[in-house]
C-alpha cells in the first residue's frame, strides 16, 4: 500500500480517465484528480501541486508540462520526467502503453514504482481496447464496402454473388491491392458514373 500520493490524470476521455482513476485509488491507495480541459494547464498543475502527473502520450499539451518542469530552474526542477537516471526500459513500457508520467522531485522510488506500474498496466489495457475497437470498426466498414461492390458487379454484369466476389478478389490479387481498396475504387467509380 502506498500512502497518499496525489496524482493528476490529464485525460479528456471521461471513460478512460475514470478507469485509470478508479484503479489508482482502489489498488494504489492514491488521491486522484482528473483534469479534462487542458487550457491553463500549467497554472492548474501549479495550483494542485501533485506528486505525479499522468498524461496521454498523444496529448500535445505534454510540452506545457515540460515548461513547468523547468520553471524552478533547469537543474533544480520541481517536476522531473519519470524514469530518473534514464530508465529506458520503463520508458519503453510507458510508451507502449501510451502514457507519460511526471514525478515531483523527492517522491521515494519504492512508493512511486507500484503506482507507475499500475498506471502503465491500466493505460496499456485502455490502449489495447482502443486499438481493438478501431480494428473492429474498420473491418465492419470494409465488409459493407465489399458488399456494395459485389452488388454493383452483380447488377452491371449479371454475376452471381460468388462470381462477383471472385472477380473482386482476382482483381485485388492482380493489382497487388487489398480487397477493400478495390471495392472502394469500384464504389467511387460507380458513384461518379451514376
Amino acid at each position: 500500500m502506498t500512502r497518499g500520493i496525489d496524482i493528476l490524470v490529464v485525460e479528456s476521455d471521461p471513460t478512460r480517465a475514470r478507469a485509470v482513476a478508479d484503479a489508482l485509488s482502489a489498488d494504489g491507495g492514491c488521491r486522484v484528480v482528473i483534469l479534462a480541459d487542458v487550457s491553463s494547464l500549467a497554472r492548474r498543475i501549479a495550483e494542485m501541486n501533485p506528486d505525479v502527473v499522468l498524461i496521454d502520450m498523444e496529448n500535445p499539451s505534454r510540452d506545457v508540462i515540460e515548461d513547468l518542469s523547468l520553471a524552478a530552474g533547469p537543474k533544480d526542477r520541481a517536476v522531473a520526467l519519470f524514469a530518473p537516471g534514464g530508465d529506458t526500459a520503463l520508458m519503453r513500457a510507458a510508451i507502449e502503453a501510451g502514457v507519460s508520467a511526471y514525478v515531483a522531485e523527492g517522491v521515494r522510488p519504492e512508493v512511486l514504482r507500484p503506482v507507475i506500474d499500475l498506471a502503465i498496466a491500466q493505460f496499456g489495457q485502455m490502449q489495447r481496447l482502443r486499438t481493438e475497437l478501431e480494428a473492429t470498426r474498420r473491418a465492419l466498414e470494409e465488409r459493407k464496402l465489399i458488399d456494395r461492390a459485389k452488388g454493383i458487379l452483380m447488377r452491371a454484369r449479371g454475376l452471381s454473388e460468388d462470381e462477383a466476389y471472385a472477380l473482386l478478389r482476382k482483381t485485388a490479387m492482380d493489382q497487388k491491392k487489398r480487397l477493400a481498396e478495390v471495392a472502394a475504387a469500384l464504389v467511387t467509380a460507380a458513384g461518379l458514373l451514376g
Binding site: 498523444e58 505534454r62 520508458m91
Partner: peptide, 15 residues
C-alpha cells in the same frame, strides 16, 4: 509524435 517531449522520449527509449 504529437509533442516534442514525446518525440524526445521515443528517441531516448529506442522506439
Amino acid at each position: 509524435a504529437r509533442s516534442w517531449a514525446s518525440l524526445r522520449d521515443l528517441l531516448a527509449a529506442g522506439a
